[in-house]
Every structure is written in C-alpha cells, then in structure tokens.
C-alpha cells in the first residue's frame, strides 16, 4: 500500500500529539495529514455511510485536539489511542436509540466481509503485536474468528451478528465470549 509507505513511526506521531497538547496548529495539521485517511477508513467501515463517517471523523479530531494532553497519560501507541476515539464515536453513533431500529441492509456487507475475511491473517504481519494477534486468531474456531472480526471492524452488535450469520443469539454470544477468552490467554502468554 502506497499510503502505508509514508506512514510515520509511532514516535513521530507522539511528538505531534505533544505539540497539539501545547496548541500547535501546524502539528495538528500534520497529524491530520498522516492519520485521517486511516481513521476515515475505520469510521466508514463501521458506519457504512459517508456523511456519518465525515461527521464522526470531524468530532473525533476536535476531541483529539482538545484532549491531546491526556495522551501522555494513556500509555498506549498514538495510533491505538486515536483509533479508539474514532471507533468509540462511531459505535456511539451507530447505537443511538433511534439508529438501532432502522434496519440497514447488511447482506451486501456480509458478502464483502466473507471475501476479505477469507484470509485476513496474511495481511496481519506488519508489527510484532500484529503477528502475535494473527497467530492467536488462528487458534480460534472459524466461527469465533469471523464473529470477532465482523464485530470489531464493522461494528456489528450481538443481534446483528445473529441475524446475518443466521445463528441463535445465544450461540453468537458464546462464540464471542469463548473467542475473546482464548485470544486473551494466547496473547498474554505470548507476552510473558
């Protein structure tokens, strides 16, 4: 991916966030230039509507600007911190009380997901963390793996997963719960 070649190291993003904490607008513009396409992609996948994703991206960057000083305390990678802001805003948007009732058609989405989750693990090898996660994902059953990937990347709720994977709600909840438990013990084992 051409965009990734120019993607800056975490240290560079950290330095930009520090300058944002001191209200350096040039640093903020640079941060936006480096990260907005990736973060827009994250919002778009979850929200599936460009106008919503634009709204959420805007909210998220205003939030990043206002809370850049809190990043120092977050002790996470800058991209993880910013992605969490965007994912949380997207999910909040998607789970608004009115929004949950409107039935967006997921069938096309699920088709797409089946395609790109056929072998998503190969792409997951860019960092040590990523290859550890990729290895641990292979230990899951394929249903567990698919429901976790669908939920994380596309923001599907338990009941949406149940509808679109054509399984009872209880089964979905069990897949997810067991999958997360196995992931956790595998990842934490790898770290120690």
């Amino acid at each position: 991916m051409a965009a990734d070649a120019a993607f800056p190291q975490p240290e560079a993003l950290e330095a930009l966030l520090s300058r944002c904490a001191l209200h350096d607008q040039r640093a903020f513009a640079e941060l936006y230039r480096y990260t907005s396409a990736k973060l827009f992609g994250v919002a778009l996948r979850i929200l599936r509507r460009e106008d919503w994703a634009e709204e959420v991206l805007q909210e998220s960057f205003v939030n990043i600007w206002n809370h850049a000083a809190a990043y120092a305390a977050a002790k996470s990678q800058p991209m993880t911190w910013m992605t969490s802001i965007v994912r949380n805003r997207s999910l909040d948007w998607l789970r608004r009380p009115r929004q949950e009732d409107t039935n967006v058609d997921y069938d096309l989405l699920v088709e797409n997901v089946r395609d790109d989750s056929a072998d998503p693990l190969e792409q997951l090898a860019q960092s040590a963390e990523a290859s550890a996660l990729a290895r641990c994902m292979t230990l899951l059953d394929s249903q567990q793996r698919q429901s976790i990937a669908l939920a994380f990347q596309h923001g599907l709720s338990h009941s949406e997963l149940a509808t679109h994977l054509r399984q009872p709600l209880g089964t979905i909840k069990t897949w997810i719960r067991r999958g997360l438990e196995r992931l956790r013990s595998c990842l934490d084992g790898a770290r120690t």
Binding site: S36, E54, V62, E129
Partner: peptide
Amino acid sequence: MRLAPLTDLTSAVNPPARVWRAITARI
C-alpha cells in the same frame, strides 16, 4: 491494545477536504 492490529485490515480512504475545513473552523 490487544485488538488494535485488527485495524490494519481496514483500508485507508481519503476524507473530503470539507472535513478538515470544518475541524479548523471549530477549533
């Protein structure tokens, strides 16, 4: 932190220029 690498699978999409204009207006 554990699940962050899953984001790597999401492809980047350039947002339209109006998003940045709205952000700078707001800050």
